[in-house]
Write a protein that binds this DNA or RNA. Structure first.
Lengths: 212, 212
DNA sequence: CGCGACTTTGAATCAACTCAATGTGAGTGG
DNA sequence: CCACTCACATTGAGTTGATTCAAAGTCGCG
């Protein structure tokens, strides 16, 4: 993990939020530039992470380079506990990202804090299995947009911090197919593309009914 | 949940294994006939389960009936904690199945025991995302067979307690495609079908290299 | 302004699907 | 014990939705 740990320099004040993870001492924030690695498959896991700003992708690779992104993590969300002792996945900053690192001190029991996070992640993953296993391209993109909207407070306008490639690798589609579906939804008046990374959901109901 | 709780009748002796989940009192075994429901989506969750014998499928449905099986659970495996307070999934016995039920007594903290199980389930689900998102039919079936073999002690001969339909709904394929892939693997001499529910893995290495 | 990376669009291909027919095997009752 | 049945599985033929390959378009940034 290579990042600029600046908490003691730029952020000497202890923010309120991380206090929710209790006993651990002051948690430093690490900065990751766009595309940089937060942790790698095979690395030993000794921490979990909370996104302060920016966005993170967690993924696995096949030997021939095929990639499956298993989750995106936006500001406020927590990740990195998917492993017992060793990471089975890669985590990368999508954009310039700040991450609060919670190191798991040996002997400290965090299962209380971690269990709800793990269960939430499990439910998320299992719901995504349904999308990948049984939904077509339009349904997948619709499910993705609805999910992103909900996680951004249910606003009509949503930010997509990731590229079409990332979206494709999350939804099990090619970038071309993702692009074609965006175009089709745009033509139907379901969404509007304000720019490449910003979508307005015009017909929430139509989008929701695609996911079933 | 409708099952025959017979532990006090047929199994008065306390087996050794469940003692690993500690403080709870004697855990009854429930019997579920083939196809019966163990819990349903929307039911409130207040227990987790360990398969004693038989096999279980956990799945979700779309409104139009499409089904995605997110996991199979064989003898010795634990499931049912995928929810905070409410189940998001259905669980059914595939065959005649015995399940040890661990009720979560209010006030009792099981996070210690549950966290490793949740993490294992999370890792499993995320690995399955890669299969569904990025692998073709042959690779999916190969991954499935390897997984089943490992979970049955790495033996050459493996039992498939589930139907082709179940396998298809787990792998995001149709029964026809599953059947065609089995035939192709058989023709290549990679596997042998002793009967519908029993497979012998002849070329372990070939099968393993398909999954990448 | 011009470069480079990303995205969109188009045309042809292909893997998996649908629909349909046939095959198989476990369980039942005559 | 055998014939019958029914559910499940396999095989075949034709279709289709997503992919691949290729070209054109767009955006951000130095």
């Amino acid at each position: 993990m290579h990042a600029y740990e600046t908490s003691r320099i730029a952020l000497p004040l202890k923010p309120a939020q991380p206090a929710s993870y209790g006993s651990a001492p002051l948690q430093p924030i690490s900065f990751f530039p766009a595309g940089s690695e937060i942790y790698a498959q095979g690395e030993k896991a000794g921490a979990f992470y909370q996104v302060e700003f920016g966005a993170v992708r967690v993924y696995r690779l096949l030997a021939d380079g095929r990639r499956q992104i298993s989750a995106f993590h936006l500001a406020g969300e927590t990740f990195g506990f998917e492993a017992g002792t060793t990471h089975h996945f890669f985590a990368e900053a999508i954009n310039a990202t700040g991450v609060r690192v919670f190191r798991l001190a040996a002997g400290t029991d965090m299962s209380h804090q971690l269990l709800p996070l793990a269960l939430k992640g499990l439910t998320r993953a299992q719901e995504h299995l349904l999308v990948l296993g049984r939904q077509n391209a339009i349904e997948r993109v619709a499910a993705f947009l609805i999910d992103m909207a909900e996680r951004q407070g249910g606003l009509r306008q949503i930010e997509l911090p990731m590229s079409r490639m990332d979206i494709g690798d999350y939804l099990g589609l090619t970038i071309e197919t993702v692009s074609r579906v965006f175009t089709k939804l745009k033509e139907k008046g379901v969404i509007r593309l304000l720019n490449l990374r910003c979508v307005e959901i015009v017909k929430q109901d139509v989008l929701s009914n695609m996911g079933e």
